[in-house]
Design a protein around this nucleic acid. Structure first.
Lengths: 338, 338
DNA sequence: CTGAAAGCGCTAACAC
DNA sequence: GTGTTAGCGCTTTCAG
């Protein structure tokens, strides 16, 4: 028989595995002396329980899967850290998957994670159909969406109010005297793109400014697409003039700034720029980029709390929860008052 | 009997669990017709294997633990991403622990991860004694250290040559004409601190410049300590003058820069600064910080490769491997030529 | 108060 | 070719 197992120690003591198991789990109610004998033996063998066996028996792995498009982004890194922080005291650990922004990888990972019987799932999906998570949902495994929300009923999500994010950005530009405002939007098939655009549009219409479709460009969240979109805007500037641009992702913002610089234009003197998710360095001697920010720490904390709530409810189906946190404006040096 | 298990499906088909198991694992050699029947049944029930049970049986979880002081730092985020990238094709997944730079948390996590029977461990330890990993090593679970290397024999590690990092920084400053060079070092009880300091010292002595202990300050890698150390250097500047400072962590660099700014001094005109691990934004219109960098992607890739090698060796003890990658200088605008 | 027995879901050596 | 059996290491009812 294998050393280091309950059974082995039990046999050595002339006891049964159940008794030893009870002592290990603090559920022993019997003779104080036997308890001490067991404890000593455990100590002597430096017994360490096998969680895999325990998981099989209890059908619970105490593991939460976190599936993200890119863990190296500070935005996601911070969310992960906060989730971890929130759930670790309850014994849960995180298992991580990085999908590299590919739907196929996302699908593959979700399959694997399901097989591994994770207790819950946090998902920043890039597949708005939500197909790949259906197994989880069908089997009552709690799923919390962050960032993008797929088109599914009854799911829980914690994100920011993306429409409001668009409104805040445009309102700020308006308050600075801008009237001709361009924007660069991510994919509108995802809520992060569609809602930010909706906010942009509604802020304009609330202020009786007519929307000009030539000032709305689309990208794919990546740097190059921001560069390209900005070039198009600049090339068309005499036909469709603008004094400011709202760019809706971190990488696209960098791309747009580079395009402006490559034309030897100055920010903010020639064009004002407001970005998204920019983590300005703490070294504030330099020009800071004005940006819309998301409270990553609060998102992560909320996700953790919701997860714990779901995981503690032994009962029935989990109630759908949607929390939309407030995006906020972080003023920098890239928007000029007209 | 529980639905969705091998046994259940086997019984339904009038077959044994082993036969179904063989088909599931592609090890079936028998009758083509039975195979098809089984396949159909698996499909019909949308059978999904339980990896927990499989793990218990095979005593292997196909899981690699990654334990880090702070996952929200880009430095670690990038390393994690690369490790993941490297091992995911072989079916391994990463389980993540964030120790918040606390030895106690590190210890706790290592205990839990051991119970969970992870197949391997990647550890950026902050406990130079290495006590908490002894269980892993004693049980032949592959461990690869990154960043700091504890004082243990026979362990594998992949980091940069920290002494060389210090030398490169000082050599560069010397080549720019600086002769009075201060430094802010992290804890010397860790190799990342001690070795960088050693590099600093040796570069000076190689150039026949006498080391001045008043120009060497110590911090704890965090922002405030960098600020404080820089203040001390500045306060003492008439007694111990210097024209440049080498700061050995990202956060301490920001702290030092802030201290300089708070005294209304200019970088690089009044003081040249060379930092560490600074990830300058891609938006290069602004002042870039001159910094020593580590090749995080290469570190991650090497860790992944080494892990796979260890994990594929069924045999005996793993050979000790130490790889010291090259740190490099990333020139920016914070060092002035004298 | 303690133990025997069954079982979590799967695999694999060994039979037939 | 396929089934039987034993077991991975643990928990937990149910007896006694």
């Amino acid at each position: 028989m294998n050393k280091g197992t309950l059974k082995y120690i039990a046999k050595e003591l002339g006891l049964s595995a159940s008794t030893v198991s009870r002592v290990v789990n603090g559920k022993y109610e019997g003779n104080e002396k036997t308890k001490q004998r067991v404890l000593d033996a455990l100590e002597k063998h430096s017994y360490i329980p096998n969680e895999v066996a325990r998981s099989l028996q209890k059908s619970s792995t105490e593991t939460i899967a976190v599936v993200l498009p890119d863990i190296s982004e500070t935005f996601f890194g911070t969310i992960v850290k906060e989730i971890e922080n929130e759930v670790s005291d309850s014994g849960y650990m995180l298992i991580l998957a990085d999908t590299h922004e590919k739907a196929e990888k996302e699908r593959k990972y979700l399959d694997i994670l399901y097989k591994r019987r994770v207790d819950a799932l946090v998902l920043a999906t890039i597949d708005s159909s939500g197909d790949a998570v259906s197994k989880f949902i069908a089997n009552d495994i709690p799923v919390v969406f962050i960032d993008n929300i797929p088109k599914l009923d009854g799911i829980s999500a914690i994100t920011i109010d993306n429409k409001k994010a668009g409104q805040i950005a445009v309102d700020y530009l308006l308050s600075c005297g801008h009237r001709q405002i361009a924007t660069i939007i991510g994919s509108t098939s995802e809520t992060t793109g569609a809602d930010r655009l909706a906010g942009y549009c509604s802020a304009l219409s609330d202020n009786n400014i007519e929307k000009n479709d030539s000032l709305i460009k689309f990208g794919d969240y990546k740097l190059d697409s921001g560069y390209k979109a900005m070039c198009e805007l600049l090339d068309n500037r005499n036909k469709a003039p603008f004094t400011a641009v709202f760019v809706t992702s971190e990488q696209m913002t960098y791309g747009a700034l580079r395009a402006i610089r490559d034309r030897s234009l100055n920010v903010p003197d020639d064009i004002s720029v407001i970005g998204f998710d920019i983590h300005n360095l703490k070294d504030d001697r330099r020009q800071m980029i004005t940006t819309i920010r998301q409270p990553e720490d609060v998102i992560g904390k909320n996700v953790g709390e919701l997860l714990l709530k779901y995981l503690s409810e032994n009962d029935t189906a989990k109630e759908e929860t949607r929390i939309f946190l407030e995006p906020f404006l972080q003023k920098g040096d890239t928007v000029k008052k007209l």
